[in-house]
């Protein structure tokens, strides 16, 4: 890749050759890349703490109503949860392979891996849809909407409050990830990313792995408490 090496230097205050992706307030690409990475990790930190509030709430409420939480979790199908876990783990793998493809300048593999990642993400959401609609029909809904008539314990609605808030917030993040990945795919088809500029792929990858990481905790906490 030498296209940026022959880019004319338009800027009056330039420092020799400019990569077209270099923003004016950075001295060189490495600085810009590392800066973006720090920014992304800080953003991930805020995401962890955002979810963290829900995890803490879940943990303390589980301590208040251990029996209700235990009995409520039987309404969740662990096979669906496990399937979604596997789907997300595979998507993390294809995502990191997308980053690798960009790093090694393999455009075809980049596009293929992005499509696979989007496919996995959509699969996840479809499975989630079936789970949600099942809960909806049974009346296993959060808070005041809880209308399940079968045998149940008093505080089971708290479990479903957290189930819907946490998986819902997670689902919003998956959906946002799909949108961003589609944009990356669109740009990748234009050849926007290569071994000297792949920051957006790398940062989206970090985000995507965090979404996976949160699911890694959601799965045992909701589906496997016994």
């Amino acid at each position: 890749m030498s296209s940026h090496a022959i880019t004319a230097d338009h800027e009056a205050h330039g420092h020799g050759h400019h990569d077209p992706n270099l923003q004016h307030h950075f001295a060189e690409m490495g600085q810009q890349f590392e800066c973006s990475k720090i920014g992304m990790w800080l953003f991930l930190a805020t995401e962890v703490l955002l979810f963290g509030g829900l995890f803490v709430g879940y943990g303390l409420m589980q301590g208040q109503h251990p029996e209700a939480f235990k009995s409520a979790h039987h309404h969740l199908d662990w096979r669906m949860g496990a399937l979604n876990t596997i789907v997300l783990l595979i998507s993390s793998f294809t995502m990191v392979m997308a980053v690798w493809s960009a790093q090694t300048n393999n455009q075809k593999a980049l596009i293929r891996n992005l499509i696979l990642t989007i496919g996995c993400a959509c699969t996840f959401m479809v499975v989630k849809y079936f789970e949600y609609s099942h809960k909806y029909h049974e009346g296993l809904l959060p808070g005041a909407f809880y209308s399940y008539t079968g045998p149940h314990q008093n505080a089971e609605f708290v479990f479903f409050s957290f189930y819907f808030m946490m998986t819902g917030l997670h689902g919003i993040h998956v959906t946002a990830g799909i949108v961003v990945l589609c944009y990356l795919l669109y740009r990748a088809k234009q050849g926007a990313y290569n071994s000297s500029y792949y920051t957006p792929i790398d940062l989206t990858g970090l985000y995507w792995h965090l979404v996976d990481l949160i699911w890694i905790y959601l799965f045992p906490l909701f589906y496997l408490i016994s």
């Binding site: 090496a5 020799g16 690409m29 490495g30 090694t104 071994s195 000297s196 792949y198």
Partner: peptide, 11 residues
């Protein structure tokens, strides 16, 4: 700026 050949990685 790109001093080395970059089929490996960016600069």
């Amino acid at each position: 700026m790109s001093t080395h050949h970059t089929d490996s990685h960016h600069d």
